[in-house]
C-alpha cells in the first residue's frame, strides 16, 4: 500500500465504490431482517415491501391532484434554492469585500467569526421576531447558517491570491472595482463552488430542523409527523429522496465547476 498510489484501471475505484454502497444497503436490509425476526409487525426499520408501500403512499394522488412528495419537494427545494442562492450572493459581497478592503475586513471579520459559531437551529425564537414564520424564516435560517462560513471561505481564498497578481492587474490599467470582479472573483470561483457544495448538507440540516418545528408542508414537517406515527416507511423514503436531491445538487455543482473552471490544474 503506497500512499496516494492511484489505480491503473479506471473501473476499479468505481467497482469498489459500488461495493461500498451495496454493502451499506445490504447492512440496512440485514438490520431490517433481524428486527422483523424479533417482531414481524415492526415498522421502525421497514423491509423492502414496507418501503414500497411507503413509496406508493407518498406518491398517491390526493383529491386535490397532489402527492405528498410533490408538495413537499416543491416547498423544501424552493426554500433550499432560495436560501442557498441568497447566502451565496451575500457571501460573495461579504467575502470579496473582506478579502479586498482593509476597512471592511476590520469591520466584518469579527462579526463573521462570531456568527459562524452560532447554530441557527438553536435560535428559532430570534428568527420568529426577525422574520416571522413564513418562507422568509426558512430562508433567513439558511442564510444565517451558511453566509458566515461561505464568506469566510471566500475571504480565505481571496487572501491566498498573491499580491503580485493584484499589482499586475493595476499595471494593466484596471481599477479596483474591475480587478475585484474581473480578476479576483474569477480566481476564487472554484473555491466558491466548492464551498457551496460543502454547504448543501448544513443548509438541509437547518431547513429540515426548522420545518420540523414550524410549517405544514415540506420534508421536515412530513418526517416529524410521520416519525411520531411510526411510519418509518414514509420517513425513509423521504430520506432517500433527500439524499438523492443532495447528491444531484452536488453533481450539478461539480459539473458547473468543471465547465467554468476548466483552467484549473486537475
Amino acid at each position: 500500500m503506497i500512499i496516494r498510489k492511484p489505480f491503473q484501471e479506471k473501473w476499479k475505484p468505481i467497482l469498489i465504490g459500488l461495493i461500498s454502497i451495496f454493502l451499506m444497503i445490504g447492512l440496512y436490509f440485514f438490520m431490517s431482517f433481524r428486527q422483523h425476526e424479533i417482531n414481524p409487525k415492526d415498522t421502525t426499520i421497514p423491509t423492502i415491501t414496507q418501503l414500497m408501500k411507503g413509496f406508493s403512499k407518498i406518491t398517491a394522488v390526493s383529491h386535490r391532484g397532489q402527492t405528498w412528495i410533490g408538495q413537499d419537494s416543491k416547498a423544501t427545494l424552493y426554500r433550499l434554492f432560495l436560501g442557498i442562492g441568497m447566502s451565496v450572493i451575500l457571501s460573495l459581497l461579504i467575502g470579496l469585500s473582506m478579502g479586498c478592503f482593509a476597512f471592511l475586513e476590520a469591520f466584518l471579520l469579527p462579526i463573521n467569526a462570531l456568527l459562524a459559531k452560532l447554530p441557527p437551529t438553536a435560535m428559532l425564537a430570534v428568527f420568529f421576531v426577525l422574520t416571522g414564520t413564513d418562507t422568509t424564516m426558512f430562508i433567513a435560517m439558511i442564510v444565517f447558517g451558511l453566509t458566515p462560513t461561505i464568506s469566510q471561505n471566500i475571504y480565505l481564498a481571496v487572501k491566498q491570491i498573491p499580491m503580485e497578481t493584484i499589482y499586475k492587474s493595476y499595471t494593466l490599467g484596471g481599477n479596483s472595482f474591475e480587478i475585484v470582479y474581473k480578476i479576483i472573483f474569477k480566481m476564487v470561483l472554484p473555491a466558491i463552488i466548492d464551498s457551496i457544495r460543502l454547504s448543501i448538507g448544513p443548509a438541509m440540516v437547518y431547513l429540515i430542523a426548522a420545518e420540523m418545528v414550524v410549517g405544514d408542508v415540506g420534508f421536515g414537517y412530513r418526517i416529524r409527523i410521520q416519525s411520531r406515527l411510526l411510519n418509518m416507511s414514509v420517513v425513509y423514503t423521504y430520506l432517500a429522496f433527500l439524499a438523492f436531491f443532495g447528491f444531484f445538487m452536488d453533481f450539478l455543482l461539480k459539473y458547473i465547476k468543471s465547465r467554468l473552471c476548466s483552467w484549473q490544474r486537475t
Binding site: 498573491p162 493595476y170 474569477k186 480566481m187
Partner: peptide
C-alpha cells in the same frame, strides 16, 4: 505613488492570470 499602466511588470512567478 501607486501602480499604474505606465509601469509594466513581469515577476518571477504569478505574472499570468491562471484562468485565462
Amino acid at each position: 505613488y501607486k501602480p499604474s499602466r505606465h509601469c509594466g511588470i513581469v515577476y518571477q512567478t504569478y505574472s499570468l492570470f491562471p484562468f485565462l
